[in-house]
Amino acid sequence: MGMRILGFIAVFVTGALLTYGVADFPKWGDPHSPANAGEVSTYFIQNTKADTHVPNIVTAVLADYRGYDTMFETVVIFIAGVAIMAILRVLATIPPGHQPVQYDPRKKIAYDPIISVTCRLIVPVIQLFALYVVAHGHHSPGGGFQGGVILGASFILIAITSNLRSALRRFSEKRFIFIACAGALIYSGFGLTTLLFGRNFLDYGVLSKIMFDTDEVMARSHSMLGVEIGVMLTVTAIMFAIYANLSSRGALRGGL
């Protein structure tokens, strides 16, 4: 009970301080507030078109101007996936004297032909849509993160509607670890290639020398697509890896 009162006090002090801060905020939707009229975001809005020919400013900033940041976000996701596999692998090894958990057969959901057939029909559509989201991320909302999550979710859907084993048959552990590594390596590979041409890390313009019939501007646009594909591969593999490990306690069999 004492903890509860202390919690109340801490929360109300924080809330009061934040409320005090809100009173000094710029008005809602003010285009000339410091955050909106800042030099950086104004530069992004005005020059993205000329610099990269990508209509979606968010994609351009994500994959080009702030490419270094996004690369390490991808690495964070990769490390999180590896950490989950490492943590739950302890669970999968049965210590001496420990009774393995018996799955109650009554817990099993009965085979439902409607759900099974519907999902079998819809999974290819979802995967196609995920690829579209990645490929069309330059012109519409979307990109590597969203497409990767959707593609990973399609495999999760297979695991939920049939069982984990049939999902792992399509996307085995060996394969998803390989794909997660490949995605992060594709991303950093783009950076290393620009270094080889004597430019800065992830300065894609110079890649027009090895791309067929492109100028520097279009080379940046195309490299962004390549980088997004790297992000997609890592996110897809890690999302499915996290689900497969969490639902089966790291054993990668049985499970939800």
């Binding site: 975001s41 999180a80 996290i242």
Partner: peptide, 18 residues
């Protein structure tokens, strides 16, 4: 302003990984 969108987009995905 696209800058907060970019920062938060990656924050959401990293958030689900953590």
């Amino acid at each position: 302003n696209p800058l907060p969108h970019v920062l938060m987009l990656t924050a959401i995905v990293v958030g689900v990984a953590t």
